[in-house]
Design a protein around this nucleic acid. Sequence first.
DNA 1: GATCAAATCCAGTTTTTCTGAATTTAATAA
DNA 2: TTATTAAATTCAGAAAAACTGGATTTGATC
Lengths: 301, 301
Amino acid sequence: MDTRQLKTLLAIRSHGTFAQAADVVGLTPSAVSQQVHALEDELRVTIFDRSTRPPQATPEGLQVIEMAEDILRREEDTRASLRGDQIAGTLMLGSVRSSALNLLPSALVELRHRYPGLKPSLRISLSSTLIADVAAGRLDAAIVAEHVGFPSALRWSPFVREPLWLIAPREMGAQDPIELLNTRPYIRFHSNVPLANLIDTEISRLGVVTNDVAEIDTIGSIVTCVRQGLGISVVPHAALQDPEGKDITRLPFGNPQVTRQIGIVERTVSPRGEIIARLHGVLSELCGTYGLARTAVADSA
Amino acid sequence: MDTRQLKTLLAIRSHGTFAQAADVVGLTPSAVSQQVHALEDELRVTIFDRSTRPPQATPEGLQVIEMAEDILRREEDTRASLRGDQIAGTLMLGSVRSSALNLLPSALVELRHRYPGLKPSLRISLSSTLIADVAAGRLDAAIVAEHVGFPSALRWSPFVREPLWLIAPREMGAQDPIELLNTRPYIRFHSNVPLANLIDTEISRLGVVTNDVAEIDTIGSIVTCVRQGLGISVVPHAALQDPEGKDITRLPFGNPQVTRQIGIVERTVSPRGEIIARLHGVLSELCGTYGLARTAVADSA
DNA sequence: GATCAAATCCAGTTTTTCTGAATTTAATAA
DNA sequence: TTATTAAATTCAGAAAAACTGGATTTGATC
């Protein structure tokens, strides 16, 4: 299915006849006729009722036309975005929507104690955006997960290495994790972030085929859905620390149990080095058992 | 731009190398290479950074990949619909990061009960993005706050009208709200969303000049910072419902007390009308006192 | 029934896509 | 640093798809 076909379809809808649409898209009427037939063959649907002149869109045809609109609009949005552009005093911090976000309020309070004149500004975004923003100087630092290929001008220092847990509603009781994953309704963490990939990769590696019943892109909502019996899922340790995680069965995920790291990415040369080091220390302490000390020269890749 | 190219792109993303993607889509590596080049030429963008092996998607490339996902999903939904599959398939939902997000897990569980073949997919994003996505057909519906200027093809139905509270650490005790706002350290909800504007506008209207000590763009983090003594702030009712809001002083914000509405935005013509109406009902019930019933013809502007 | 414009059919031409072999290139091991 | 290997790219020809243009058919109108 080609966007040129879809453009022709919309031109027919707009101008009423195949012949006029042909003028608009710069083809012959014959080509237009063939394009529509090709689309009908591919989708196995009759888009136009040709017993009238001009042909009338069928109800199914209207659906295809609406889809054409959506697809072309989506394409145009992406083209516009690819042409687009972008955009500073205060400690500019970013964080992904990870469970580590729960630690940030405490950490910010601690930073304020230590540096009373500091005004933290916290923004939540996707890790790729945050990394780019740190590199570009729009953020002083950002909290992101382990990532492949940080730019060489950036340094990433993990402050936590936490395990992943397979979680199930308490009434499911404790069973073999593989058995659970293979048989129970699975709520998939569907997001373009390393954690989602980490989970999916390990599930593949374990040779499991999950029965996905939902896709949700916030871990907190996943935990609540599991607790309410919608199914099972996989979440990082910190997500089970608040009261929401109390009545949930947890089993080690992965063989050996999979862990993931979250850290702070900053520019290697930054006037904020001292504050960021302090932030790292606080966050590490707040993570308790799984906290990681800052290394003097943390490897960036 | 052809859907076959898009399928190839997703195969590359899924399997990691051009060669493996070629196997998956049934082409030669050469054809895959040429398809990607053709797409790059057409979109005038570099999708893959070829200085590594395997090639790595560029930030722009990731945008194109996301577009590819959306377009192929849209196509598949149309095919399913043309085949007569209705209340199965994926319900594409979006939500802003508002306190209403806490209600969604329960609502999704309820929907699954009612429509067992339904697979909800939940994505969190900014309201402007969500509205555009609903209009573009990328999402079936989204939960967003009251908004100026919804596109005419969309309908927004509020399910909750909740009050805003000025919150302070318990040890500050109860005082005049204006006095607090004028004197105490203020944590500003800094975000490009209607709620932030609503709060800032009312503060200006009250003739108050706040002493900003931090800017945070997640309400949950704000509540925690307030509880830990960083300062005072303004948050919607639902943010104080979980245990985090227990030890916090709350005072009516605004004169008269300011309220804000959250609702569901959907396309006026949508095959998902029945499900979305049901979702609206469930969310309204979950909001208790402040829940709003769905009106037959809710005004969209 | 006659007229007309639009849609379709048909066959040849042009363009695009693909294959397969040769070449280049990044990654890795020795 | 060199050798090896697998993956990506280039190249040229083959195959498939898309298009043109003329002939024919068909629905609408008078």
